[in-house]
Amino acid sequence: MEQDGKRVTRRKFLETGIGVITGAIAIGLGGTALTSIGAPAITNKREGKWVEAGSASEIADGQFHKVGIVYDAKDGWLEGKVKQLVYVKLNGEEVFALSATCTHLGCNVNFDEQTGNFKCPCHSGVYDATGKNVSGPPPRSLAKLEAKIEDGKLMINTAVKEA
């Protein structure tokens, strides 16, 4: 009777051991893998930098201009050219720059000269000329970017100045 009891205890011990060991290995492996897979969500941020975007004379008329900027950036393992669309306009001395990325689901907006508004082709979001969201699904204004004129060149900082 007692022997039986002992055997069960021993069996229990072995079973628990197997469970703990396989469990620890599985959790360790899975945890490591998932941490690594998830990490770029936080670490893979695009850094802001000043980028040349053509000559200042191109925007001299004080209207909005669509400027596709291409610059070197690091994206994960890739170091190479990154493209981005920006709308710029000369306000006297100041350069006003808006990111074209719709704050709804990331499509690029178009400037409509007729109405002087920005329109998103995706779900018809509308922003006014200051970038403020006026109708449709967009939850926020278009992001503003820092921009300036230096030696006759238009310079844009890719970091969002104010969201």
Partner: peptide
């Protein structure tokens, strides 16, 4: 793919 294109309708 062109992230600077604004004419494409997804």
């Amino acid at each position: 793919a062109d992230p600077s294109d604004s004419s494409f309708k997804p």
